[in-house]
Nucleic acid binder design. Structure first.
Lengths: 186, 186
DNA sequence: CGAAGAAACTTGTCAGTGACAAGATTGCGA
DNA sequence: TCGCAATCTTGTCACTGACAAGTTTCTTCG
């Protein structure tokens, strides 16, 4: 296992994405440096260009991958509203780097087809969970309910990540999120 | 009224903050360039340093001013929960540049005393509005209710700003926010 | 009034960055 | 095995934030 292999890294694209996740967790998506990623991967400063074109290209790939992972996490809750909300917050905290890129469309190409498809998959999974909640009879407005659910989960997640919440909320995001999300289903 | 006055702009600090608000609305807070602000204000590229030290200093001042404006907007709703929520969303949409900086603490000095004080004023105004809602008797948990209210308003606001919401939500943020916020008070 | 010192701003410079062009190396299919 | 395409490198440019040092204006105080 040689330490440095000249030319043909073998899996540079994947290595760069992994390095990007690390770097974003350290300095945030805005301060991300392509040259730093190249250094982390042990390649020259221009190597990333070949795989992603530019910085926005790399972040587009990351965002698409993130929406895909989020969709999977939501689907795994099997249309349980509360669990879907908790999973949403859990995803944001556990995959912070993904989440921070996903909702910053000015950093990537929001019209990328692959990304749009993955984004739609998460949206569908979310609505599906909400539809299960409001099945209890009476006139329901799934669209509005889904928007409310998405808002409360997304708001809690972003406030948590921004460190804006007071200490008394505790250090367990899943538990705290569950308590907050319950206010909506009550 | 001379067009260019050498030395002593007169109100450069304010001019730079105003230029920053403009620039952030155009390119976002991350892509903000101090040199661009200097050009907009008609001064040399190093002039901003004297007033703010560095980029983080400028954004700290902006964030503090933003929290102050938000607190005023919330206080003006006189402890009406729904109106406070609508005002929160309205602030985010109307003062997009402020809002985008305020909740990106990695961009500024989050331990700045003036900023902390302004932030605490908004927090108090928010809790005050929620306390008014839950005054209807029964066991109440104002902390948790305030967190839920903050989450849903903040989530809706950030999703709106990120352009993540589907078209069918419409183009009137106040109206759409009111419908969503009502799901919490019901 | 006027001089000293502080405040405000400028010019000059440096390392780091993203993007691009052009060239070198390697793997793969005909 | 030969040629070509994919992969990666070296070199370069304009731009940026930060800092150092100098210049101009304002203010305060003798």
């Amino acid at each position: 296992m040689t330490e440095t292999r000249a030319y043909h890294h073998g899996d540079l694209r994947r290595a760069l994405l992994a390095a990007a996740l690390e770097a974003i967790e350290e300095v945030g998506p805005a301060a991300l440096s392509l040259r730093d990623l190249a250094r982390r991967a042990g390649v020259s400063h221009a190597a990333p260009t070949h795989h992603f074109g530019d910085k926005a290209g790399l972040l587009t790939a990351l965002a698409a991958q993130g929406f895909d992972l989020l969709a999977q996490a939501l689907i795994a809750t099997h249309d349980d509203f509360l669990e879907a909300g908790v999973a949403y917050v859990d995803f944001a905290v556990t995959h912070r780097a993904y989440f921070e890129v996903m909702f910053r469309p000015e950093l990537y190409r929001a019209d990328d087809p692959e990304l749009l498809a993955a984004r739609e998959r998460s949206g569908a999974a979310l609505r599906s969970g909400v539809a299960a909640l409001s099945g209890g009879g009476g006139p329901v407005d799934t669209d509005r309910d889904a928007l409310a659910a998405w808002s409360i989960a997304h708001g809690f997640a972003t406030l948590w990540l921004a460190g804006a919440l007071p200490d008394r909320v505790g250090d367990n995001p899943r538990e705290a999120a569950r308590a907050v999300l319950r206010r909506l289903s009550a």
